[in-house]
């Protein structure tokens, strides 16, 4: 009788512990979800009033931003286009470099070379963005000015270069993982059929890792569009319509550079939240695309 009772109690207390642990982990998980929800709701609540006041069309397609003038203008088309062009430019420059680096590291490089380049890529990923900005400001901007004979080097072009370098690590690492995961049998089969190694890599390995590489590109887009500090320091930060060698302002920098001074409750501040909302929607879209690619990859496997 007595031992049985002990057993019962033991099971009971274990079950309680189980429940407590389960609850704790659930709460931890909910904190993350809660943060995302909170930010989303806050951005929507804070971002909509200004859009309503300015008018969606005027806000999104207005070509002039002059938030502190006597007759303020709140058009964010220059920021949207700059962000889109800047990101596109960074992808055009960064993806080929990153992609070929990944192919080289995964298939061609020797162990030692790979270890060295891997370390370098990891270091590149760890450099804070303000350092990119500072180096860009001190080295890249004057160099661009000299090279192209411009009055000033702070421009969309400089920002694209900085962004292209900044997205390299994410592109290389994600593509590398995808390429490494290609089963060796595929390559062996191709080689056995008489294809050269390079043919094999580009006609067998790369197509097999296609969705992973696509995910790398989308990740790069996300990183580029969300970057603020580095581009703020090299882009000149003036609300012009974008042009390659003119000073420009991105969506992120538009929020960052004016937020400190915009007074509480003013239309300027609300408009900054609206810009953040637009940026948020962009990033949601990119994330959805990323999920789409990753899911497809998962299904195939």
């Amino acid at each position: 009788m007595a031992p049985l009772r002990f057993l019962k109690r033991d099971v009971k207390s274990k079950r309680t512990l189980e429940r407590v642990v389960h609850g704790t982990f659930l709460i931890m998980g909910l904190i993350t979800v809660g943060c995302v929800l909170l930010i989303t709701i806050y951005l929507i609540v804070a971002g909509l009033p200004a859009i309503r006041e300015i008018g969606l069309i005027d806000f999104l397609f207005g070509k002039e931003w002059a938030s502190t003038e006597a007759e303020p203008k709140f058009g964010i088309l220059p920021f949207i286009l700059t962000s889109v062009y800047g990101t596109a430019g960074a992808i055009v420059l960064g993806v080929p470099v990153g992609f070929f680096t990944a192919v080289f590291l995964s298939k061609l490089a020797g162990k030692r070379v790979r270890a060295v380049v891997d370390t370098a890529v990891n270091l590149l990923a760890g450099i804070p963005s303000v350092v990119y900005g500072l180096v860009g400001m001190l080295v890249l901007v004057p160099a661009v000015r000299e090279l192209f004979g411009l009055p000033d080097g702070a421009s969309l072009f400089s920002a694209i270069i900085v962004l292209a370098i900044m997205i390299l690590p994410s592109i290389i690492k994600v593509s590398l993982t995808a390429l490494d995961a290609v089963p060796k049998d595929y390559e062996d089969a191709s080689l056995a059929l008489g294809a050269t190694p390079v043919e094999t890599y580009f006609k067998v390995s790369v197509p097999a890792a296609k969705s992973g590489i696509a995910a790398a590109v989308v990740l790069g887009v996300g990183r580029a569009i969300g970057e603020a500090m580095a581009v703020m320091m090299v882009s000149g930060n003036v609300a012009n319509m974008p042009s390659l060698f003119e000073s420009v302002r991105f969506l992120t920098t538009a929020v960052a550079s004016e937020m400190a001074y915009a007074s509480e409750g003013s239309l300027q501040r609300n408009a900054l939240f609206s810009i953040a909302l637009v940026l948020f929607l962009f990033i949601m879209l990119i994330n959805a695309t990323l999920n789409f690619f990753l899911k497809r990859k998962g299904e195939r496997e």
């Binding site: 400001m137 000033d152 702070a154 703020m232 320091m233 000149g236 003036v238 000073s247 302002r249």
Partner: peptide, 14 residues
């Protein structure tokens, strides 16, 4: 302006 920078230090550097 050609550049609108966010700190005095940035202005001096530029």
């Amino acid at each position: 302006y050609r550049q609108e920078l966010t700190s005095t230090g940035d202005v001096i550097t530029t």
